Amino acid sequence: MAYRETEKMRQRKAAVRQKITDCTYRCVAEGGFRNAKVTRIARMADVATGTIYRHFDSKEDLFAEIFRQATQHEVNKVADALAPPGDARERLERALRRFAERALEGPVMAWSLIAEPVDPKVEKERLTYRKAYADLFEQAIREGIEEGCIPDQNTRQSSTCLVGAVSESLVGPLSPSQTGQTTTDKTDNDPLVDTIIRFCIQGLTGTRR
């Protein structure tokens, strides 16, 4: 008679998998992917290291899953900032500000998502989510062109430029050598965020903010 997995067993396996991902997420948030060792994750999750590999084919697959979860959360925050009423330029400014401020408020995780050297599987996810940000910005730029608050331009190229400008501007400030891997005072970041937003909006519209 073939073995049939019971619902109780499926729920138990799902709970173990969730505990592993939760602990991995915490490790990355505290010290980046490089400090998320499988032995430490197993210890935190109170499972054997072999259990981790029963749920994930490799460490890279586990890290890719964490990257997807963390970045999708941030993409959703940017989407939320673009959703409220207002002209497209205002909404883009709000979304770009949300992107930058959230990164600077959680520099360790932000560095891990934006710039930390990672395995190819995780890097592939990084490229996917950079496109997700660009897609959101592109739609807003198109709406701005239709509204007349943003001049006509190549929306795809402009959207990828926005993602690149914000991300590159944050690499230095988020670097562990600069942050000491601690959270920072929001007021200390205001001038940097204002400069990033000013540069992006001026490049997008051709006018000073």
Rank of each mutant, 00 (worst) to 15 (best):
P151V: 11
L162I: 15
Q69F: 08
I66R: 06
A83R: 14
V47K: 11
K121Q: 15
V171H: 06
Y129A: 02
R98C: 13
Q72R: 11
T39G: 01
K124Q: 14
H55S: 03
D80K: 04
E65S: 13
S169D: 09
F137M: 03
A79S: 11
P117G: 08
A42L: 11
N76F: 00
T160R: 11
A132V: 10
A64E: 07
Q153K: 14
E60M: 10
E90G: 13
V166H: 02
E93P: 01
D152C: 07
L62D: 09
C149L: 03
G50R: 02
H55I: 04
D152N: 05
D46P: 01
G148C: 10
T128C: 07
E74S: 04
R126P: 01
E123W: 10
V78M: 04
M44H: 08
E146W: 00
E74Q: 15
K77C: 06
K59P: 05
F56H: 05
R91P: 06
V163Y: 12
D61G: 06
R130S: 05
H55W: 04
R43Y: 04
R126F: 01
Q69V: 09
K77Q: 13
G172Q: 10
R94F: 06
P120G: 09
L136C: 08
D119L: 13
V122D: 03
P173E: 01
A79D: 08
V163C: 08
L92D: 03
A45D: 06
P107L: 03
G106H: 15
E143Q: 15
W111L: 03
E101R: 14
L174P: 07
H73V: 13
E123I: 00
R97M: 01
A134Q: 11
T71H: 11
M109D: 00
V163M: 05
L136G: 04
A134E: 07
I141S: 09
T49D: 09
E65G: 01
Y53I: 03
F99A: 00
R102K: 09
D135W: 02
P117M: 07
N76P: 00
L162R: 07
V47W: 03
E123R: 13
G86C: 08
P117C: 07
A110P: 04
F56G: 08
A165R: 11
E74K: 12
A100I: 02
V47I: 05
L174G: 10
A83I: 02
H55G: 04
